[in-house]
């Protein structure tokens, strides 16, 4: 869909020329993962950042030491519960509507002002993840809008546009979206059965020598040679339930336990994020 309301730049955007005197072999150096494979990056979570919203939260994932590699910065606001529009049919429970939007400047490739298909996809995943956590029948005939703005995407600016698959970035973004939306929902005072948080685990191959791939939690795509498969899990720790599972990639058919193990590591990552979430929420009441 064309955006006719704003003056957008030309479709084929170019980057400013960049001259690097470094030797050619330096171009291919990838930063390698310095964390242990089962460690997640540090999170910062804060609620009540938007005064006009009924609930809001801000999440920041640690920027790695390498310059140019930006972390994830998310801001979420929850509006409602409020009356449904007159055209909407009767609903005995709350109607969730989730919007996930990258800021135009969030990623290397400039985003449009209208939501594209990947952003809508993230919104649908987020909605499923939250729907399992909300006690929807406490709020009949009302709707709630959950708006997540991605202020800074999780991307390595030095990798070229063609290199690397954006989908792996989306997994990390989704897990952040779930955590930040759960904090904003709790801030808005909407009944939830549990605090839901997202976690990502991936099956990565770091060497080309045909060694067995390993599982890494909270992967940064640019730190690994290849990502074979990844899954993003939304998990309720008290209930031990998964509300949303997004799996992508191919697993070797020889190892059937790999899938379970990958999901298990995703849950582990989600538990780590949940600890931050609970600390943040306890801080608001304490």
């Amino acid at each position: 869909m064309n955006d006719r309301r704003r003056i957008n730049g030309p479709a084929g955007a170019t980057l400013a020329p960049f001259f690097d005197d470094a030797a050619p072999q330096d171009l291919d150096t990838r930063s390698t993962r310095s964390r242990p494979p089962n460690a997640t990056r540090k999170l910062l979570l804060k609620t009540g950042v938007t005064p006009s919203a009924s609930g809001s939260a801000y999440l920041e994932i640690e920027t790695s030491a390498k310059p140019g590699l930006s972390g994830l910065k998310l801001s979420c606001s929850v509006h409602g519960p409020r009356a449904l529009p007159k055209s909407a049919p009767f609903s005995p429970h709350i109607v969730l509507s989730t919007h996930v939007k990258y800021a135009p400047f969030a990623t290397q490739q400039r985003r449009g002002y209208l939501r594209d298909s990947s952003e809508r996809d993230l919104g649908i995943h987020l909605e499923t993840a939250l729907r399992g956590a909300i006690i929807a029948d406490r709020w009949p005939k009302s709707g709630v809008d959950i708006i997540v703005s991605i202020i800074e995407g999780d991307q390595d600016r030095e990798t070229s546009k063609l290199q690397g698959d954006e989908v792996w970035d989306m997994m990390n973004t989704l897990s952040g979206c779930i955590t930040v939306a759960a904090a904003a929902l709790a801030d808005a005072g909407i009944d939830c059965v549990d605090t839901v948080a997202g976690g990502v685990a991936a099956l990565v191959q770091d060497a080309d020598d045909g060694s067995a791939p390993s599982i890494a939690v909270d992967p940064i795509p640019s730190e690994h040679k290849r990502i074979l498969a990844a899954c993003c899990v939304a998990y309720l720790p008290t209930r031990d339930e998964v509300t949303n599972l997004w799996f992508r990639g191919d697993l070797p058919a020889s190892d059937l336990d790999l899938y379970t193990s990958l999901v298990g590591h995703g849950i582990q990552a989600s538990k780590n994020a949940n600890r931050v979430l609970i600390d943040c929420l306890s801080g608001t009441v304490g």
Binding site: A133, I135, A186, D191, C192, V193, D194, T195, L236, P237, T238, R239, I278, L281, S282, V285, G286
Partner: peptide, 23 residues
């Protein structure tokens, strides 16, 4: 103080009020 999902007590001793649920 409570966080969503936190266990508050058994249903045999308390009645659920606003802001709580039974599981």
């Amino acid at each position: 103080l409570a966080i969503p999902g936190q266990l508050l007590g058994p249903a045999s001793r308390y009645q659920p009020g606003p802001g709580t649920h039974l599981h």
